[in-house]
Simulated assay, not measured.
Amino acid sequence: MEVLLSDAGTQMRSFIPTITPLSLETGSQLRVLTCTFDREAYHDGLYAALGMAQPAQIMGAVVKRKAEYLAGRYLCRLLLQVEGQEGQVAIGPQRQPVWPVGWQGSITHSGNRVVVALWPDRTGRLLGLDLEQWMPTATASTVQSRIILPDELDGLAAHWPSERLLTLAFSAKESLYKALFAKVGHFFDFHCAQLCAVDDLSHRFTLRLNQDLGEDLLQGKQFTGGFFAGARQLLTWIACS
């Protein structure tokens, strides 16, 4: 057993060299972990070595998907263990994470980085994370009409390059989608909400619904989230009661 544990630990350190906590919402019960992972160090045996379940939906996936799934679910398990929970986060029919009873969370990954958040599940709480690479100019011009409404970004964060502001709009709406999916229960597109405020000083943004999505999710309802703009990636989140 000692040899197995040592071997698993060595494999894990090769696959995930470091794990770092993040503080996104000061004073809240939100717990967040991030890590980078090495796709070259991934192999299918890591699931068994770490005692992690590999669902059928993942078994036939490409290596990139298998690696990011394992890294994300491993961080989920670490967060749950801190809270005295031994369960794992399963995968739902629409690929959504299925959290143990009493908990909710969010998982996001981009490139070789994963970020995972967890907090107690209470009625009305919303949680969504999204991590994106900054859009190249060519990509931004191609996808802009699918992400934002005409003139949506006018007057917002004027000193931001247009492709970076579009990346923020995209990521913020992805965070909103993840936060609302459990309540809405179906797909809704980017035009269902619009970015209406960006505050560089507080690193906050505000989204407003453009249509009704449910009884308490009516047109005009606003959601405030946060963002961290790194050199290569953008992290956005919505965590509110």
Rank of each mutant, 00 (worst) to 15 (best):
residue 60 G to R: 15
residue 49 A to N: 11
residue 91 I to G: 07
residue 109 H to R: 12
residue 95 R to L: 02
residue 129 L to A: 05
residue 54 Q to G: 02
residue 65 R to A: 05
residue 107 I to G: 05
residue 120 P to R: 12
residue 129 L to P: 04
residue 112 N to D: 13
residue 131 L to S: 06
residue 121 D to G: 00
residue 77 R to V: 11
residue 95 R to I: 02
residue 48 A to L: 11
residue 106 S to E: 04
residue 115 V to I: 13
residue 72 G to R: 06
residue 77 R to Y: 08
residue 61 A to P: 04
residue 100 P to M: 08
residue 67 A to R: 03
residue 70 L to S: 12
residue 61 A to D: 09
residue 47 Y to S: 09
residue 49 A to I: 06
residue 128 G to D: 01
residue 91 I to K: 14
residue 129 L to W: 04
residue 131 L to V: 12
residue 102 G to W: 05
residue 69 Y to R: 09
residue 126 L to Q: 14
residue 66 K to I: 03
residue 49 A to P: 06
residue 46 L to V: 04
residue 107 I to W: 10
residue 73 R to P: 05
residue 60 G to P: 07
residue 42 Y to K: 10
residue 66 K to C: 14
residue 82 V to L: 14
residue 49 A to R: 07
residue 59 M to R: 15
residue 73 R to F: 07
residue 104 Q to D: 06
residue 106 S to H: 10
residue 82 V to E: 14
residue 125 R to W: 03
residue 86 E to W: 09
residue 119 W to G: 04
residue 121 D to F: 12
residue 97 P to D: 07
residue 97 P to I: 01
residue 113 R to L: 02
residue 88 Q to D: 13
residue 68 E to W: 09
residue 52 M to A: 10
residue 126 L to R: 15
residue 50 L to Q: 14
residue 47 Y to Q: 06
residue 85 Q to N: 14
